[in-house]
């Protein structure tokens, strides 16, 4: 793990990169990294996140600045900008059931090719997918998701990069921290090694590539 500024970390992300962003309706989202993506005008991004948040908040900021070419998410209903950009064919939106989305990311981070889920069988979600019958039940084969970068927000990070999360700000963060080539983390508090007890570490330090120093 290397401690860097938000500016340095975001400079590593090229235009057109695939980026996972933690958070649920902007809660548990690394806002400073999103602000920096907007400032450096990183464009044509493929974003993987639970939702599109709302304008001005979380990943919503990337859509305000028209930096996104494609979005994979479970819900965009509270961001009218994304709806507009989708209808105008400016953003390709792939809507995925939330449980399927997180499990595809988990599979990507755990070296699995995909998962079998009953969710979506017999609905629009099934289109173009393989249905597999096992023990008399129907499942869809949903493939794993990985990304070039994961932008993660933790509650505590220690000097080595061990992470814990707070309350409902955990959501997709620890799962995405497993599924990207490069993991960049912001934390509410950076604390000495040992403050987070071994039993309480959720994301182990070796998964974290860059920790953004708190100003």
């Amino acid at each position: 793990m290397k401690a860097v500024s938000a500016e340095e970390a975001v400079a590593l992300i090229p235009n057109g990169a695939t980026v996972m962003v933690g958070g649920f309706m902007g809660v548990g989202t690394p806002e400073r990294l999103l602000d920096e993506l907007v400032r450096q005008r990183k464009s044509e991004l493929t974003i993987i996140s639970n939702d599109a948040a709302v304008p001005g908040q979380g990943v919503g900021k990337l859509f305000d600045a028209a930096l996104v070419a494609a979005l994979t998410a479970s819900h965009i209903g509270l961001n009218p900008n994304v709806q507009k950009q989708m209808m105008a064919n400016k953003v390709a939106v792939d809507l995925v059931p939330q449980g399927t989305l997180v499990e595809r990311i988990r599979a990507g981070g755990c070296g699995l090719g995909g998962v079998l889920t009953p969710t979506g069988v017999g609905t629009m979600v099934e289109e173009g997918k393989r249905r597999i019958e096992l023990d008399g039940k129907s499942f869809l084969l949903e493939t794993a998701l990985r990304s070039d970068f994961a932008l993660i927000h933790a509650f505590l990070a220690d000097y080595l990069g061990n992470l814990t999360y707070a309350l409902t700000a955990r959501n997709f963060n620890p799962v995405m921290a497993m599924a990207a080539d490069t993991v960049i983390v912001t934390a509410e508090h950076i604390v000495p090694v040992g403050v987070i007890a071994p039993d309480h570490v959720v994301t182990p330090a070796p998964l974290v590539d860059y920790l953004i120093a708190n100003g």
């Binding site: 998410a73 819900h75 965009i76 509270l78 059931p97 939330q98 449980g99 979506g120």
Partner: peptide
Amino acid sequence: VPGMGGAMD
């Protein structure tokens, strides 16, 4: 087109 969120699961 709000998306299914967690409803399908």
